[in-house]
């Protein structure tokens, strides 16, 4: 079914369309008191993901990238805004989804987690873990589920599957666990997978094989990824486009190579200049920004980056957080001083 949708026009109809998505976490709330202070974890973001495309969401810790991923998988409810998911020609709004549509949504959207040691239930076998969504949603007979799980294990490279089906997580290495997690996400044939730093806990030598596997499977299963990472080099390897987040806002979004070669937002530039390069001969141009990340607690309505920005002007201090400027070729940047 996803094939037909991709044919229907990858350029015209996005798979995921996020509009003005916000998540505010109340601070010091109790049943007796209304909260007055909010952490603006995600503060009005917009983006689209085409069928089969991978979007990288890059930013430092606390920028709201993981919260975005959790809203897209409905682990966290959005405070406001829309998340539209294209499914069989219809657009479902994830943010305000009906209970009756929940099952259908869970078949379309899956997630791969960061820590393979914590994302598998230690008391359940590989089979139980991978078959979970089939079992819960009562898809197929026991025999069919077994076969589907075996097929998935084969496809994620846990071969021969019979050797892995009934192992417990503690009997697997980190890389093998992450393969199980990938199999679990894909077993139900989703169209969209949120991958939250799936390789950051793995050893360097395992990392590439997992990333390659994810790229291969993206093609085979025709899934789109929202790839959340703090590592721009990894995002470059995995993603077609990259969105850079800072304090709950997307400050720049562009096709991968365009973003790396032609960064426009001062934060993107600083971030890029700070990434260590595995080449001792490489001399990079440093762009210093002041201080550390500001707090997302009740931020003023001006540009979120203003305190650290080397090119902030009076205009920035008196205006709202800038809207996206379209630089062409899908390159958008939220800054007044380009």
């Amino acid at each position: 079914m996803s094939e037909t949708m991709a044919d229907a026009g990858a350029d015209t109809q996005p798979l995921i369309k996020v509009e003005n998505l916000r998540k505010l976490f109340p601070v010091s709330k109790s049943i007796f008191r209304e909260a007055h202070d909010f952490v603006h974890a995600v503060d009005g973001i917009d983006f689209e993901i085409a069928p089969g495309e991978s979007l990288g969401l890059v930013g430092e810790s606390g920028c709201g990238k993981s919260t975005t991923g959790r809203m897209l998988t409905k682990l966290t409810d959005a405070t406001s805004g829309q998340i539209l998911l294209a499914d069989e020609g219809e657009l479902i709004d994830i943010a305000s989804i009906q209970r009756s549509h929940m099952r259908r949504f869970r078949r379309r959207v899956q997630m791969i987690f960061q820590d393979p040691f914590e994302s598998l239930n230690p008391r359940r076998t590989v089979y139980d873990t991978v078959a979970e969504s089939l079992t819960v949603q009562r898809i197929g007979s026991v025999q069919q589920r077994e076969e589907r799980v075996a097929e998935l294990l084969h496809r994620v490279g846990l071969t021969p599957p019979e050797q892995f089906l009934f192992r417990y997580p503690h009997e697997l290495s980190g890389g093998q666990r992450q393969r199980v997690a990938i199999a679990r996400a894909l077993v139900i044939d989703p169209t969209f997978v949120v991958a939250d730093e799936p390789t950051s806990m793995l050893d360097v030598s395992i990392r590439i094989s997992i990333m390659d596997l994810m790229l291969k499977l993206a093609e085979e299963f025709n899934v789109s990824y929202l790839y959340i990472t703090h590592d721009l080099a990894v995002a470059r390897y995995m993603c077609d486009r990259i969105a850079v987040m800072y304090l709950g806002k997307i400050v720049e979004i562009a096709p991968t190579e365009e973003l790396l070669s032609n960064p426009q937002h001062p934060y993107t530039r600083a971030l890029l200049s700070a990434v260590p390069v595995p080449d001792p001969a490489h001399k990079r141009e440093r762009i210093d920004i002041k201080g550390g990340i500001s707090k997302a607690l009740n931020p003023p309505p001006v540009c979120r980056f203003i305190e650290r920005c080397p090119r902030a002007t009076d205009h920035c201090r008196t205006s709202d957080h800038p809207e996206f400027t379209d630089l062409g070729d899908g390159h958008f940047v939220a800054c007044y001083n380009l």
Binding site: V109, D115, S119, E132, V136, R184
Partner: peptide, 10 residues
């Protein structure tokens, strides 16, 4: 996270 994963499985 495996509890989140179970929720995502439905």
């Amino acid at each position: 996270p495996f509890i989140d994963a179970a929720r995502i499985a439905g």
